[in-house]
Design a protein around this nucleic acid. Sequence first.
DNA 1: GCCAACGTTGGC
DNA 2: GCCAACGTTGGC
Length: 135
Amino acid sequence: MGYWLVKSEPYKYSWEQLLKDGRTYWDGVRNYEARNNLQAMKSGDAVLFYHSNEGLAVVGIARVVAKAYPDPTTDDPRWVAVDIEPVETLAKPVSLSDLKKEPRLQNLALIKQGQLSVMPLTKEEFAVIVAQGRA
DNA sequence: GCCAACGTTGGC
DNA sequence: GCCAACGTTGGC
């Protein structure tokens, strides 16, 4: 079972929109490292949903429901998309500043490499963030 | 709106 | 294959 964190700008696609839709495809990735991470996702993997630009917080937990397939929004075969569905809305969004304060999260790509939009998490990192979000 | 960080592109 | 220039992203 894999653990991931994906970023979305709320005005493009927000957590609330995902709740309303019930399921969405995660596309538009145009960065090789993020693409490689997408391709490594498997159905059933857990995905934290982070709002960038506005909010700056992890707001919910989603699940991969379809592993990587060619991105339907482009003819370029290099890019892929996955399908995700919402699992749980965090009672208390975990903000970026909270993440930065947590010693166990200092290796997060979110903190070290701000512009990566899809990144892997360890099981512990996932658990730490979710525990904060439920507190 | 600004600026720093990073990835990608293209000339040599 | 190197490296400078450029574009994009995202925090502040």
